[in-house]
Simulated scan of single mutants.
Amino acid sequence: MAQDIKSKFRWPQFNWRGAIAIVGFFAAWHFFVKLGVPGFKEIAAPFDVLQTFLTRYVNNQEYWSSWVSSFKRVLYGFLIAQVLGIPLGLMLGTREVFHNLAYPVIEILRPIPPLAWVPISILFWPTTEMSIIFICFIGAFFIIVINVHDAVRSIKNEHIWLAQSLGASSGQIFRRIMIPSVIPSIAVGMTLGIAVTWNVVIAAEMISGGNGLGRLTWEGYVSHTVTVVIIGMISIGLAGYLSTIVVDYLEKKMMPWRVVR
């Protein structure tokens, strides 16, 4: 019994090369600041940033509530984008009439940067929170729609014809051929979407106001407190990294046939 459990459970391997790279990055940062290398003169050293974090933020409830606020906005915007984007991508790929009507509109709206929607979202939505969530939604929505649409359109007609010749119904073709073919593209859309969503939410918090990691970084810039700016930047990086870990876990559950190396 214990042997079976041990064989199924695998501890994640420690990436020592990555650890060395991170240590080397902070060491280079420290020495560049201390040596006064151009461009680093006005930047705080890593130990100054750490000291500011330990004295002002580690026990600061407002700082951790900024984490929660940013995570909630990213989560809501990301989930809404998946719930609406995946069915829309499937319809665009499978319904020719709908594709001819809706796809040109999507192609016009898709190149618009998410931040260009900020003024409209502030005017349209009644609260700042809803406007920021909407911007997060926009950041991930078009990515997932286009990925799913392209995946459906790339399915070979021979596969569908073969299934039809064997007596498969439209529902069976959708479940057994289209959905498995689309899942890898959904996974790619999720990976790209979560990264864009974090980029967008930070900028939206800076512009729209409210709390959050983006607002924390902006306030550090306005007050000319470099250590606060760097704390905000590192916090954003860690938050995005944690979100990517969750998305990677979901991808593995969605595609169990992939070999994990």
Rank of each mutant, 00 (worst) to 15 (best):
Q172V: 08
K34A: 10
P180V: 01
Q82T: 07
V228E: 14
T227E: 15
I132M: 11
H149P: 06
I194L: 03
F71C: 15
C136L: 07
Q61K: 15
S243V: 08
S181K: 04
H224Q: 13
G189H: 02
W257R: 06
S235L: 04
W117P: 03
A195C: 12
N199Q: 14
R10Q: 13
L216F: 14
F142N: 07
I138H: 04
I236L: 04
M206P: 04
V105P: 07
S66R: 04
N157I: 10
V118E: 10
P119D: 05
F142A: 09
I108M: 12
S70T: 06
V229T: 06
A239H: 04
V74T: 00
E219L: 15
S121V: 11
L192T: 08
N100P: 09
F14K: 15
L35C: 07
T227K: 11
V196N: 11
N15E: 09
W29Y: 01
A116L: 03
I173G: 00
I245P: 02
D150S: 13
G237F: 04
V97W: 12
P126T: 09
T197P: 00
L123V: 13
T52A: 09
L166M: 09
R153A: 11
A187R: 00
P113T: 01
V152Y: 08
A2E: 14
S154T: 05
V58C: 12
M254W: 08
F40A: 01
W257C: 04
E62F: 09
L192K: 07
N15M: 09
F32K: 06
V83T: 13
T94K: 05
I194V: 09
V145H: 01
G212M: 02
V200L: 11
A19L: 15
L35N: 09
T191N: 15
I138M: 06
G77F: 02
D150I: 11
I144W: 00
F71W: 14
D150C: 10
E62Q: 12
E251V: 15
W117E: 02
Q172C: 08
K6I: 12
L75H: 07
W198M: 12
L238W: 05
I160N: 01
L90Q: 05
D48R: 07
R153M: 12
D4Q: 15
S131C: 11
D248P: 07
L90A: 01
I207L: 06
P12E: 03
E129F: 06
R110F: 00
Y57N: 05
F9C: 14
F40Q: 01
F71Y: 15
D248C: 13
A140E: 04
G85E: 05
T197Y: 03
S131T: 10
W117R: 04
P87G: 03
F25Q: 07
G139Q: 03
D4L: 15
I230K: 10
G237E: 01
V182R: 06
A151Y: 01
G220R: 02
N60I: 01
T227R: 12
V247M: 01
N147E: 03
P111D: 00
E62D: 12
M233N: 10
F142S: 08
H224N: 14
R56Y: 15
L213H: 00
K252T: 13
S208E: 12
